[in-house]
Design a protein around this nucleic acid. Sequence first.
DNA 1: TCCTTGGATAGATGTTTGTCTAAGTAATGG
DNA 2: CCATTACTTAGACAAACATCTATCCAAGGA
Lengths: 120, 120
Amino acid sequence: MPKQLPIVAMDACCSPLAREPLSAEHAVELSKLFKAMADPVRLRLLSLIASHAGGEVCVCDLTDAFDLTGPTISHHLKVLRESGLITGERRGTWVYYRVHPEVLARLSAVLVTGDMPVPA
Amino acid sequence: MPKQLPIVAMDACCSPLAREPLSAEHAVELSKLFKAMADPVRLRLLSLIASHAGGEVCVCDLTDAFDLTGPTISHHLKVLRESGLITGERRGTWVYYRVHPEVLARLSAVLVTGDMPVPA
DNA sequence: TCCTTGGATAGATGTTTGTCTAAGTAATGG
DNA sequence: CCATTACTTAGACAAACATCTATCCAAGGA
C-alpha cells in the first residue's frame, strides 16, 4: 500500500445503513463521500476516470469532455481528491487521475440492503 | 407495485460507474440521489428507517433521536421523500416512514467496481 | 366545539457551493 | 532565459441549502 487514504475514506466503512442505525460520527464521515458525489459533473468525472482503459486519465481529456473552464474542472477534481475517491499524479507535463476502487466498493457495501440479491 | 416511484429513482439505474462513462442526463438523475444522502442528518434518518424492525418508523421517534427542531426533521424527510428513497404514510395521528429498498440497491449497484468480490 | 398533540409549510437568515476571471506554478522547447 | 502549454490557486459572486421561528392543518379526546 504505497499511499495512505484520507481519514474520510478510512472511516466511512462498516455495516450497511439498513443493518443498524448509523452513529452520528459515521454519518458525518459518510456524508462527506456522498457530498463529493452529489454533483453531476463530479459523477461524470468519476465515471470517466473509473471506466477508462488503463485505469487512469489525463486531466486534459477530462476537460475536453465538458463545457466548463479548466479551473472549474480542477476544482471538482480537488473535491474528489480530498474525499479520497481519486488520486492524481503528475508525470512530466501532464497530470493523471485514477480512482480508489476500495472506497467505491465500501460505499457500495454500505448501501446494500439486507435481502438484496447478489448483483449479476 | 402499488406505488409509482419518482422519475429520479426510476432513471438512476443502469450500469456501474466504472463500466462506461455516465451520460450527462444519467449523471443529473444520479446526483439527485447522492445529494439527498449528502447530509449527516439525512443519512442517519435513512439508516434509522431502514434498520428499524418492522420496516417503518414513526416521525415522533425520529425527531427524538436528534437535537434538531421538528420542522428541520420534517424538511430532511421531505428531501428524502422527493428523491424517492423513502415514503411516508399517515395512519391516524402519526406518520410512518419506510424506505424503498430497490432504490438503495440500485445505487449500490452503480457503485460496484468491476472486479469487486461479491459482498458477504 | 374547543383544546391538545403530531407533523407540515412558509419565510427569514447565515453558510456552503458551483462557476467564472485573473494570476500563479511546473515542465518543455526554442 | 523567455515563451508556451498544462494545471492549480485565489478571490468574487449568485444560487442552493440547513436551520430556525411562527403559523397552519389533521386527528383525537374532553
